[in-house]
Design a protein around this nucleic acid. Structure first.
Lengths: 213, 213
DNA sequence: GGTACAAAGTGCGCGCACGCAAGTTTGCGT
DNA sequence: ACGCAAACTTGCGTGCGCGCACTTTGTACC
């Protein structure tokens, strides 16, 4: 039978993952991201190159992960827990909260990421990671009657967050119109997520119309 | 001044692109996708390997492109043209129409794609390609007053289509519940897009409330 | 016609992602 | 305490994506 709960195993895994994250970011900051070979990261973390690739499927991913951390699962947890407010507000609130950096780990890291195009892309792509955990969280609130709806809404939220992040990291010397000053990320997230609210509300209301399947 | 309209140039470009698509698919069908090297595709299309990589950034992309073709831009065109129906219906209709394969180019190709995991992923990812053209189409209908809303909606539509395609290509021996028989893709698309309708409707209605900025 | 410039094609070289088949560690059953 | 199976790591080999510098091809302007 496959081992279900393994303590030390999982612990070690997270340790090396963390070590890799940290090493990647540190080296990238020290020498600039173009002067960091994958071998260096692996070596700094004390594992083989091959093992490194078992954890991250690209160099950028490792660097960005140091800043992203476990943001996704925390968002999902908050959404699942905040049953006292509407689904819409729970989702928006959770996302805004998690992307509001109280004492941003490393402003230098953010600067680095937003500068280099490939890192920007990797950073923006992290938004898609919230899709899976968010699906289960939303499904729980909707009562699992319609798994598909939950998946769709989660995917849309993830896509929207991605749009917001894209806009946030842009230098954007816009063409004709006045370029909106970047402003704070929380505000941007709220405004970007706004068009999605009707869909979330509708899904939640429908759930009440037919509580049991 | 940079040349704006170039005839022969663009023509040749599309020709080689098409040649690469065709070669990729043909070879993949003949020998199985694992026995096709990028060099083979390039050679069959009569260009260098490097040029091949100027058109497609992965082997899978080239193979899948043969079936996907220019689906995205056609969707956008239909959405922009169908001003006599509501935005929601225009979008859903256009997508369903373009994904309804009247005489599917190659059933063998589809079989191949849905079989191999890496090809499945590449196929599913093509859905994201509709985002950009769809953004401009929706923005045109909403009156460009809110570019951001258009981007968000387009991103959500793309994400939702991706979810639908994911579900469609799954063998899905589900765990507990009864496994939904795959059914026809058009139906699946309609049902998957359904939860998104409120958001599209709301955006369109708001446009009427404040025609000018 | 010729000329000057941008855009597409090409060869080279370098890391990098990942499949595979070992070797090593962890944890469970008895 | 012992052994075994699953999980994790590692080295090797291969193909691939792409930056760079250079050549070729199409286009515009004279």
């Amino acid at each position: 039978m496959p081992t279900r709960r393994a303590g030390l195993r999982e612990e070690k895994k997270q340790a090396t993952r963390e070590a890799l994250r940290a090493a990647a970011l540190r080296l990238a900051l020290e020498r600039g991201p173009d002067n960091v070979r994958v071998d260096d990261i692996a070596e700094a973390a004390g594992v083989s190159t091959r093992t490194y690739n078992n954890y991250f499927s690209s160099r950028e991913q490792a660097i960005v992960a140091a800043v992203t951390a476990e943001r996704e699962s925390r968002i999902a947890a908050v959404v699942a827990a905040a049953t006292d407010v509407r689904l819409t507000d729970a989702v928006v609130g959770a996302i805004v909260a998690q992307y509001t950096n109280p004492a941003e780990h490393d402003r230098a890291a953010l600067l680095l990421i937003t500068t280099r195009p490939t890192l920007r892309d990797a950073f923006v792509d992290t938004a898609t990671a919230i899709e899976r955990p968010l699906t289960t969280a939303i499904a729980g609130r909707l009562g699992d009657t319609d798994e598909r709806t939950a998946r769709v809404l989660a995917a849309c939220v993830a896509a929207t967050v991605r749009v917001a992040l894209e806009q946030w990291v842009q230098p954007t010397a816009g063409a004709g119109g006045l370029v909106v000053a970047a402003g704070s990320l929380p505000d941007l997230l709220r405004r970007t997520l706004a068009p999605l609210r009707p869909a979330l509300d509708a899904a939640e209301d429908q759930r009440h119309q037919r509580p049991q399947r």
